[in-house]
């Protein structure tokens, strides 16, 4: 099990950020996520695996500068 924005979400071995966002229907509007203390950006979504028990947050990234 992982938590996404504070809510529980089922985990499976090898689950990537890209797959998680697809399951959530949030692939289009999410450029950055935070997995525990690590920020992951869209170019690395497919290659980033989420560990069991992770806290995941979807970062809107409207701003920055």
């Amino acid at each position: 099990m992982i938590r996404v924005g504070g809510k529980e979400h089922p985990w499976r071995e090898g689950l990537t950020v890209a797959e998680l966002l697809a399951e959530l229907g949030r692939a289009e509007d999410t450029p950055v996520v935070r997995v525990n203390d690590t920020f992951v950006s869209r170019p690395r979504f497919g290659a980033t695996r989420i560990p069991d028990g992770a806290e995941v947050f979807l970062i809107p990234m409207i701003a920055g500068g």
Partner: peptide, 21 residues
């Protein structure tokens, strides 16, 4: 705490995000 954690890391999160893009 659910987004950028600016109260902990300031604006330093931008470094790797900018790098990735």
């Amino acid at each position: 705490p659910k987004q950028n954690e600016m109260s902990v890391i300031g604006t330093t999160h931008l470094v790797t995000i900018m790098n990735d893009h």
